[in-house]
């Protein structure tokens, strides 16, 4: 005798899996984007914007009569802040807060078994949770990038916005930074999703990744290629200052940087999807 569920639930197939994927992404997004869970990542996303806006306002207030601040100078400041603060700390910790919790959070709240008992392939679950995390982090930090970018027009005045964006390099630069932001979320997201799934205590690998990315300027060129920062830095449209004692390496060409990050993220996601098939639920003490 067939149970009622088997009458109305379609047979397993790509159409059903696509529907499951959409549903899980929606459920996860609703959980990630509401409530206190989002607060740390939101603060990390808003802080650089506040800083750039404050700087813009102070510069504008302190302008000497007759001074005309240049948008190009402001773009350089944005590039510095973007690389040293937004990418290095805000996106890193924001992604850690969001992606580590995708599986580890469910283990800590002892609710992962609800997902595992759903008639869903675990690989679909990994992909859905990753997409939900990516959408959350991507939207948050795209907000940071766009709002931070807008703040650079405060000193020169927003009448510069139109010409710089439409007739100058503004739109191209902004689009590049938004692209880098999504790539960063993709790369760090894949790493942290896998770390949150594979490690009972994810802080150890997280601290290692942070230290590795932190010493990136001082690494020899060969080892630099093993850090996400190297590829993201290579994509930056505006050059930024490097520490005095750092070892200089050739930036990776754009196709290598983008392709490398995409391939790296896919490989890490593949590992997570392969590993989850054997994952056991152990609600030990956390």
């Amino acid at each position: 005798m067939l149970a009622e569920s088997e009458v109305t639930l379609a047979s397993p197939g790509w159409r059903l899996r696509a529907r499951q994927l959409t549903a899980i992404v929606r459920i996860e997004l609703r959980q990630r984007l509401t409530g206190l869970r989002i607060l740390p990542a939101l603060l990390l996303a808003l802080a650089p914007v506040g800083l750039l806006m404050l700087a813009g306002i102070l510069i504008r207030i302190n302008l000497a009569p007759g001074d005309t601040p240049s948008v190009a100078e402001a773009v350089k400041v944005f590039a510095e802040v973007y690389h040293t603060l937004v990418l290095r700390f805000c996106v890193f910790f924001g992604c850690a807060a969001i992606f580590l919790m995708l599986f580890r959070g469910d283990v800590m709240s002892r609710s992962l078994h609800y997902w595992f008992m759903s008639p869903v392939r675990r690989e679909v679950l990994v992909l859905a949770k990753f997409l939900a995390g990516l959408a959350t982090a991507g939207l948050l930090f795209t907000g940071t990038t766009v709002l931070g970018w807008l703040a650079i027009y405060i000193p020169a005045g927003f009448d510069q916005l139109g010409p710089h964006m439409l007739h100058g390099p503004g739109l191209r630069l902004l689009a590049t930074y938004v692209g880098i932001t999504w790539l960063a979320c993709l790369g760090y997201g894949a790493v942290f999703l896998a770390v949150g799934q594979l490690f009972r205590n994810p802080i150890l690998p997280t601290a290692f990744v942070l230290a590795w990315e932190g010493i990136h300027p001082f690494l020899p060129p060969l080892l630099k290629k093993l850090s996400v920062t190297h590829y993201l830095g290579s994509l930056g449209p505006v050059p930024v200052e490097v520490p005095l004692i750092s070892l200089v390496a050739e930036p990776a060409p754009v196709p290598v940087a983008v392709g490398g990050l995409l391939l790296f993220s896919l490989a890490v996601l593949g590992l997570a999807a392969w590993r989850i098939r054997r994952m056991e639920i152990d609600y030990g003490s956390d």
Binding site: A3, S5, S118, V120
Partner: peptide
């Protein structure tokens, strides 16, 4: 899990 989840309902002690 695709087949098992259809056939089984589970209520944890947690």
């Amino acid at each position: 899990p695709e087949q098992l989840g259809r056939a089984v309902g589970y209520c944890s002690q947690h």
